[in-house]
Amino acid sequence: MHLIKAMHLSNDQMSAYVNGQLTAEQKAGVDAHLAVCPTCRARVEAHEGLSRDLAFALGSLPEPRATSVDRWWSALRQRPVRTPLRLAMIAPFAVSVMLLLIPVFAAPVVSVPSAPAVTAGVVTHRQSVTVVSTPSPEMVVAEPVPQPPETP
């Protein structure tokens, strides 16, 4: 324990201390030093002040406007993702396109889509895209739709 007073705390120890990274034992060691060292106490207080400032500044990051939240949702809904109605319309179309394309490409191995597991929408959509050889499924699915003008 004679070392407690001998060495000041490093910045690394202090930031670990104020960010809750020390074990109970390590924390007790730091506390013991702080109890006898006003120099380190002052520096730890500054580190704690920085933590408070960070929590304050990052805790008050701006929120999106309510109108933006609604507008983003409208845009999201229009992406070909997973609405059952849209899928119900896409699925038969995908199969018929595939059947039409089989003779054209004379492709001997074209697997008919099996029953989609969970997200019927995504799977069906991807298969339809693959068959008609438009850009990669990922790109098509991720393609942003034109956004409607912002509502006031």
């Binding site: 983003w72 845009a75 999201l76 992406r79 993702v81 969970v118 995504v122 942003p144």
Partner: peptide, 15 residues
């Protein structure tokens, strides 16, 4: 843009 893309991806891969 990131938020919209993130939710689109999340819904697509929710399974």
């Amino acid at each position: 843009e990131v938020v919209q893309d993130s939710f689109a991806y999340a819904f697509r891969t929710l399974y």
